[in-house]
Amino acid sequence: MQLHEVDVGRIPSDHIDGNGHLSVRFIVEIAAHGAHEVLVACGLTDERRTRTHQGVFTVEHHLAYLGEMGTDSDLAVYVRVLDRSSRAVVLLAFIVDRTQRRVTTVLRTVVVSVDLDTRGSIPFAPEIAHEIDIVVRRHESLAWSPPFPRWGTLSGSRRRRWRRRILGE
Rank of each mutant, 00 (worst) to 15 (best):
P123G: 12
V90H: 13
V77L: 03
A129K: 06
R84K: 15
S155G: 14
G67F: 04
V111D: 04
H139M: 08
T109K: 02
E68H: 07
Q100N: 12
P146Y: 08
R159T: 13
L82K: 05
L63I: 10
R101I: 07
D115F: 10
V106S: 01
R158F: 13
V96G: 01
Q100T: 08
W151R: 15
R119H: 13
S155Y: 11
A125E: 13
A143Q: 12
V111Q: 09
L75G: 04
L107R: 04
A64Q: 04
S85Q: 11
V79D: 05
V96P: 01
V103I: 14
D115A: 09
V110Y: 07
E68N: 07
F148H: 11
S113W: 00
D115S: 08
Y65V: 01
R159V: 11
H62Q: 13
L92T: 03
A88H: 10
H130S: 14
D74M: 12
V103C: 05
R102E: 12
I95L: 06
L82V: 11
R101T: 11
R87V: 10
A93P: 01
T99S: 09
D72E: 15
R137F: 05
V110W: 06
V90S: 12
R159C: 13
G152R: 08
H130E: 14
I95Q: 03
G152T: 15
Q100K: 12
F148D: 10
A88M: 12
G152K: 06
G70I: 02
H61K: 03
S141E: 12
D97W: 01
D115V: 11
E131H: 10
V106P: 00
P147E: 13
E127L: 11
G120R: 15
V111Y: 01
G156Q: 12
T105A: 04
R102G: 06
S121H: 08
S157G: 15
R160V: 15
P147Y: 04
L92W: 07
P123Y: 04
R137E: 14
S86N: 13
V106G: 01
I128V: 14
A76F: 04
V112Y: 05
S141K: 09
P126D: 15
T118K: 06
L116A: 07
R160Y: 14
D74I: 07
R101L: 10
G67P: 05
V81H: 03
S73R: 03
I122H: 05
S113H: 09
S73K: 01
T99K: 06
D117W: 09
L75A: 07
D133L: 06
V112G: 04
D74H: 10
W151K: 13
P123L: 06
R102H: 09
D133N: 13
S85F: 13
I132D: 03
V112T: 10
R101N: 14
I134C: 12
T105N: 09
V111K: 02
T99V: 08
A76G: 14
R98C: 06
P147S: 12
L154D: 09
H139Y: 08
V96R: 01
A125K: 03
L116R: 05
